[in-house]
Amino acid sequence: MGGFENFLFSFFNLKVMATYLPLIAQGLGLTIVLALLIVVSGLALGLGLAMLRACGIRPLNWLIIFTVDLFRALPPLVIIVLLFFGLPAMGLGMSSFAATWLSLTLVLMAFAEEIYWAGITAVPKGQWEAARSTGLGFFQTLRLVVLPQALRITIPPLTNRTIAITKGTALGSVVGVAEILGASQSAMSFSANPSPLTLGAIAYLVLFIPVVALGRWVETRFAWKR
């Protein structure tokens, strides 16, 4: 076999790819479900924390800031390993899927809170004062006046951060989640051929290149006028 044929046989082996396509398609499905769950719960929790922080209760805010800092500083893989291998020692074992979901949700929550909070503080104080003086309550002001303005400017950084964190679903393979990477690695060991890994990489590209392009578009579309 020549070098090129060897390369094709190893990385673009159509026979192997066809055999394991269903397995990797399942992995793709799992990655999408996991990513959507993380995006929904992470963004919602982040917004909730930012709104709590807007209430301005000192000790509570310190707690929020510490939690946010903690999950911004810890590598996601460390959190996943801690939840998956550590918690069973307390009788709180969770599935590898749940551990991955919870870890990345906490990470996205932390980054999202920081971005939402930056957006809320960027709204001029006069907006608060004017809204309150028309008789709106604190939460009405936050919901109807401040957040609509704040959220618009948070869209570009939030999109990019969300994309980066959803790619972390691949880390689930370390604790045995059969998402794209996990499925490709099993297929690679079954077939003793790395073509399934090529297929897995293609699956990620199909999934994420449109998302990365969307992120780029959002960045120019919602760019702050300087």
């Binding site: 060897n6 390369f7 790619k167 990477l181 990620y204 590209l205 290149i209």
Partner: peptide
């Protein structure tokens, strides 16, 4: 840039570490 922003780093690492040896 878009290509390597779209592939999760762990996938890249596994590919380089476990995949490439098959091609010698």
């Amino acid at each position: 840039t878009d290509l390597f922003r779209a592939i999760p780093p762990l996938v890249l690492l596994v590919f380089l570490y476990a995949g490439l040896p098959f091609a010698g």
